[in-house]
Design a protein around this nucleic acid. Structure first.
Lengths: 216, 216
DNA sequence: GTCTATACATCGATAGAC
DNA sequence: GTCTATCGATGTATAGAC
């Protein structure tokens, strides 16, 4: 029972890719049908509408994400560790399901207005609740700063994290785990150079200006 | 020079709002015409196509952004200060032109595929060049970490910064300047609490940005 | 400069033959 | 389960009267 590449699954996969690349509204049912090798009318034997396909794409994605988040939180003991796990998990899920991830972050604000997608909205609210719980517990324990609104920090890391799916293509040079470390390190420790003089790069006589050149 | 609120300008403004709220592809020329109080056919006396309106909206926005960035860089002496100025300037521009900002960050990846918008693409590349220049000069001078790819840091702060236009509504409680301070502080200093109340430890890094007391 | 009217393409969705 | 064929709505854009 390993493989049943059902037509239904083919449709969902192809539609997800098209939705991610062109946007849901700009993707036509004829394009979806073409990409799986059938005619547009045949789609309606498997789905009752185009929106139903969107529902299935995002529903499956968010269910998987919620499950993975639960596992991630179980691995962490401190808020810092939990945050680290959430970052890595998010990037792993984004790597496994890049199309659904792109749809989720590109069009959630659009789907939010349509009552049809209230299941998606509920799942998205659950995701936010998971993050906010970790962040607020970290503030309460003193691990995280208290002078930054938890909600502000959440939104900053959320947007930076999810939108990385737009530009990050996993490779051996820069694998997902390394990106996760970098994201965690920047958001927790900052981009200011640490006092430890471990940098190897010598810049005593660099050809690079200290300031960017100003143009007229 | 007092600009007359020409019909052309009305069309651009109304279209920008609609494009931001519903997406470019989902906005119809009839809706644009309705919002300015004319019929759809009349739009074509002012613009040759819907895409031409998009061009004008984003072209004017990116021109303004480029000018403001030049002023921002002139105010900074170090890479850290320049970065701080870029953050504040970006948020100010986002506050002044929220609709164009939303379009810019929501649909740049879509416009990128169409050769029609190559001017917009060039302006966007210029924006990126500005940021990268500041970041790389900071790495070269030792102000910023050398173990994070400048391009990675740029993309993280870029996405977090621009997408704040989706959720940040300037208010007296949380004005744009405070958000700019928070963004800068998180990305430069990190979210980890700087002093640990349970342990006394020599910490030479006392110089992180301090949040001024909130004004009434 | 705006209107009326419409051409022409394409959209999501449906009905029924096979 | 897929096809053919098409409906009705809606999209951008145009032509010409006023």
């Amino acid at each position: 029972m390993t493989e049943t590449p059902s037509r239904r699954a083919q449709i969902v996969d192809s539609a997800a890719q098209l939705f991610a690349q062109k946007g849901v509204g700009a993707t036509t049912v004829r394009e979806i049908a073409d990409s799986v090798g059938v005619l547009s009318g045949s789609l309606y034997h498997h789905f009752e509408s185009k929106d139903a396909i969107v529902d299935e794409v995002l529903g499956g994605y968010l269910d998987a994400l919620r499950g993975r988040y639960a596992s991630a939180l179980a691995r962490g003991t401190s808020a810092t560790e939990c945050l680290r796990e959430l970052v890595l998990t998010s990037l792993q899920v984004a790597e496994e399901q890049p199309y659904a991830t792109a749809i989720y972050q590109n069009e959630l604000h659009y789907l939010r207005e349509q009552p049809r997608f209230k299941d998606v909205q509920a799942a998205a609210a659950n995701v936010q609740k998971t993050w906010m719980g970790v962040i607020e517990s970290g503030v309460a324990s003193g691990e995280f700063r208290g002078d930054i609104e938890p909600r502000v920090f959440y939104r900053l890391i959320r947007d930076a994290l999810w939108l990385s799916a737009r530009w990050h293509k996993p490779s051996t040079d820069y694998p997902t785990e390394t990106l996760a470390e970098d994201v965690t390190s920047v958001f927790l420790n900052g981009f200011i150079a640490q006092s430890k003089p471990t940098r190897v790069r010598a810049n005593s006589r660099g050809g690079r200006a200290q300031r960017p050149a100003k143009k007229a």
